[in-house]
Amino acid sequence: MCLGISVSLVMTSLKSSLTHRRQTSHLLRVEQTDWLLEAGLVRAHRQLRDDSTYTGEIWSVSDAIRGDEPAEIEIEVTRDDASEDSLIVRVSARLGQQEPENPRRIQRSHTWQIAAAF
Rank of each mutant, 00 (worst) to 15 (best):
L95F: 01
T33R: 02
P70C: 05
T55F: 02
E57P: 02
S16E: 12
S86N: 08
L37E: 06
W112R: 03
C2R: 15
Q98F: 05
V91F: 01
C2D: 15
P70T: 07
S109A: 12
V7Q: 12
E72T: 09
L87G: 02
G4T: 15
T24S: 11
L3F: 12
S8I: 01
T55R: 06
T33A: 10
P70M: 04
Q107F: 05
I73H: 00
L3G: 11
Q97K: 15
I65S: 00
S16T: 07
T19Q: 14
S62Y: 02
G40A: 01
A117D: 15
T78A: 09
E76Y: 03
E84N: 10
H110C: 14
L41E: 04
S8T: 07
S83I: 03
H110F: 12
I114K: 03
R49D: 14
I5E: 14
L87E: 00
E31V: 02
E57N: 07
H20E: 13
T12A: 15
Q23S: 14
H20M: 11
D50I: 01
V89E: 00
A115V: 08
T12S: 11
E57R: 04
D51P: 04
E31K: 12
F118T: 12
W112G: 02
S83F: 00
S52Q: 11
L95H: 03
A93R: 02
E84M: 03
H45L: 10
S8G: 11
R66V: 12
G56H: 01
S109T: 09
Q97T: 12
S62R: 07
I106V: 06
D63T: 10
Q23E: 13
A82E: 13
